[in-house]
Amino acid sequence: MSIKTLTIDGRMVTGAAGESIFDVAWNNGIRIPRLCHVGGISDVGACRLCLVEIEGWPKLAAACLTPVEEGMVVRTQTERLRRHRKLIVELLLAERNHVCSVCVQNGHCELQDLAAELGVDHVRVYYRFPRLGVDMSHERFGLDHNRCILCTRCVRVCDEVEGAHTWDVAGRGVNCMIVADMGEPWGNSETCTSCGKCVQVCPTGALFEKGKTVGEMYKDRRFLKYIVTAREKRQWIR
C-alpha cells in the first residue's frame, strides 16, 4: 500500500493511497463538517459541506470524494469555505420546515449543531414552507419529510449494510423525496426488515422512532462500525 504525504491546514499528514482527504483529515484530528458522510458506508458528496480548497485546483473539491495525492496542499477552514458552508446550511433550513423547538431531534441534531457552529443566527433566503407529509405508517418508525435534507445516508445504509435497498430517491429538484420501495407508504414496504439502521444514521429528525416526543430522539450508530469491522475483518468487537 503506498503512502501519500500532504499538507492539511498547514500540517504535514500522511494517508494511504485511495483514502479520501476527509478521512485523512479526521484521522489526524482535523474536523471537516459534513452531513451526508457517515463512516462505514460509501460517499456520494451530496451535502457539499466538506468542500475544501486545494492549491492549484481551479475549483473547490468535496473532501469525502477526493483521494489524497502526494504533495497536496489542502485548506479546510478558510473564510471563503466558511461563507459557503454557512449558506449551504441556511439553504437546507429554508428548503423544508425545520421547527427545532418541537422536533424529536432537538438538542442532538447534526444539522442544528452545524448551524450553531457556523453561526447561523438567521436565514438570509426566503423559507419555502413546502407542504410535506409525515409517513407514520411503519409500525416502529416515522419519516418526516419536513426535516429531510436528502443526504441519502438512509438509502446507502439500507442498501450497503442491511442489503434490503428499501429506500430510494424519487423526483427532481425541489420535488426530490426519499421513497420506500416504489413510493409505497413505509408500512407497506415488502423489503423493509424493520432493522432501524436508516433511523440511526439519519443526521436530523427526519427518521425517528415512533413514540418519541420533543428532543427525545438520540441516534446511536455504534452498530455501523461493529458490523463493518465484522464483515471486513471477521472480528466481532465493539
Binding site: 423547538s101 418541537v102 415512533k210 416526543t213 420533543v214 428532543g215
Partner: peptide, 14 residues
C-alpha cells in the same frame, strides 16, 4: 394537523 401525536405536547406548549 398532519403532525405525529407524540409531538403534540411540545407543539401545544408553544
Amino acid at each position: 394537523e398532519g403532525r405525529p401525536l407524540h409531538e403534540m405536547p411540545g407543539l401545544m406548549s408553544r
